[in-house]
């Protein structure tokens, strides 16, 4: 029995009490939280960046991460509906419950695109609050960072000025980056693209690119041959520049469309870690904008 308790004490990290432990759902939120929180927070990211953000496995190890967190920051807008609720129900941690002081839903800071006026599963796996992939508009990153800064300040008021300064520094840096990206993307204005799922629409919106169709016939419904034949016609009549494709769906249909019509297929990372080379927010947008630079 003695050894049992000793092991238990050893397993409990002693650091726990020094910094704020923040759990976040996706890597991009982790990056923002690290920039703003810096040395005053420990960040643990639940989902992997190279996997479909809709389908994260609710592994028990994620429950123990939530158990030891002081706060939880999620993307929201139903993106995590398939995996975070069962984790919260088992984490037995009242600090991170929705509605509590330690819970932040980032979607509440964003004006969302594509809010459906009516919702039915006959229309596929629709997000009732609108398109939740809002972090791919670089303007939104600033809004989110602002929100994270005030969230951290309410959790740890003694470091308010640190968080505020970190945010101001980040804002300056990010505005410079955005100018660079706007320049790169100027030539892409009014281009047309095809996506697999509508997960790059905020990026397209930011740079005035039109997403004219998706490879999946309806959200969350895998490609069908009838829909693919329609896409071939769409490509032939509307001449989109390319298919922008996420890293986690099979490119089988995209390759087929390429073979039939010659359309270019461009792989687009959606988050940090989606491709091994992408380790920061700046690298993510450098890569995304670089894909249109030709």
């Amino acid at each position: 029995m003695k050894t049992f308790f000793l092991t238990l004490i050893l397993l409990v990290s002693t650091e726990v009490f020094a910094k704020l432990n923040i759990a976040v759902s996706y890597p991009y939120i982790g990056a923002i939280t690290k920039v703003i929180g810096a040395e005053n927070v420990n960040v643990s990211v639940l989902a992997k960046g190279n996997w479909d953000p809709h389908f994260v496995v609710a592994r028990p190890s994620l429950i123990s991460k939530l158990r030891r967190s002081d706060a939880l920051i999620i993307n929201g807008a139903h993106l995590e509906i398939g995996w975070i609720p069962p984790l919260i129900r088992r984490a037995n941690n009242r600090n991170i419950l929705p509605g509590s002081k330690g819970f932040l839903d980032l979607s509440s800071s964003i004006n969302m695109l594509q809010k459906p006026t009516s919702v039915s599963r006959a229309g596929g796996d629709v997000h009732p609050d609108g398109n939740p992939h809002f972090h791919l508009d670089p303007n939104n990153i600033l809004l989110l960072a602002r929100r994270v800064a005030s969230f951290l300040s309410t959790l740890d008021p003694s470091n308010r000025s640190n968080f505020e300064n970190n945010f101001q520094d980040f804002k300056l840096h990010w505005k410079k980056e955005m100018k660079k990206w706007a320049k790169t993307m100027a030539s892409a204005n009014n281009k047309k693209v095809i996506e697999y799922h509508r997960n790059f629409d905020y990026f397209l919106h930011a740079y005035h690119i039109e997403g004219i169709a998706t490879i999946e016939p309806l959200p969350g419904i895998p490609p069908s041959s009838r829909h693919t034949i329609e896409l071939i016609n769409t490509i032939k009549t509307q001449h989109p520049c390319c298919i922008i494709h996420d890293v986690y769906h099979s490119t089988k249909t995209a390759t087929y469309l390429h073979n039939k019509t010659g359309i270019k297929v461009v792989i687009m990372p959606h988050d940090i870690g989606a491709l091994e080379s992408i380790e920061s927010l700046s690298e993510l947008f450098d890569y995304l904008t670089g894909q249109f630079n030709d």
Partner: peptide
């Protein structure tokens, strides 16, 4: 009654 240990491994 369930108790979740505050360990890095999930231990319930």
């Amino acid at each position: 009654v369930q108790w979740l240990a505050p360990t890095s491994l999930y231990w319930m």
